[in-house]
C-alpha cells in the first residue's frame, strides 16, 4: 500500500517535495498539502483501495501523514462501513 499511496500523493497532493522521500510520520501539511490536495488524495485513495471514508474520518488528522492515511485505510478495509 505504501508505494501506491506515495504515488497518489505525488500525483494529487501538490506537495512541495517528492512523497517518495518523505518519512512515514512527516506532517504532510508542513510540506504543502492543502485543502484541494486533501480532496484529490481522498478521491484517489478511495478509488485505488476501494474504500469509502465516512464523514467522521474526513478530518485533517486522517490526512496528516502517510502513516495516518495508511492506518485509516487498513481500518476501513478490515471493517467496511
Amino acid at each position: 500500500m505504501n508505494a501506491e499511496l506515495r504515488s497518489i500523493l505525488d500525483k494529487h497532493g501538490r506537495l512541495g517535495v517528492p512523497a517518495t522521500g518523505l518519512d512515514e510520520a512527516a506532517d504532510l501539511f508542513r510540506f504543502g498539502l492543502d485543502s484541494i490536495g486533501i480532496v484529490n488524495v481522498m478521491l484517489a485513495v478511495e478509488s485505488e483501495f476501494d474504500v469509502e471514508f465516512p464523514d467522521a474520518l474526513l478530518t485533517r488528522q486522517t490526512f496528516s501523514s502517510i502513516a495516518s492515511i495508511t492506518r485509516v485505510v487498513r481500518q476501513l478495509q478490515s471493517a467496511p462501513v
Binding site: 501538490r14 506537495l15 512541495g16 501539511f29 508542513r30 510540506f31 504543502g32 498539502l33 492543502d34 485543502s35 490536495g37
Partner: peptide, 8 residues
C-alpha cells in the same frame, strides 16, 4: 514555509 500552506 511552502506557499501552499501560506495560501491556505
Amino acid at each position: 514555509t511552502p506557499f501552499g500552506t501560506i495560501a491556505g
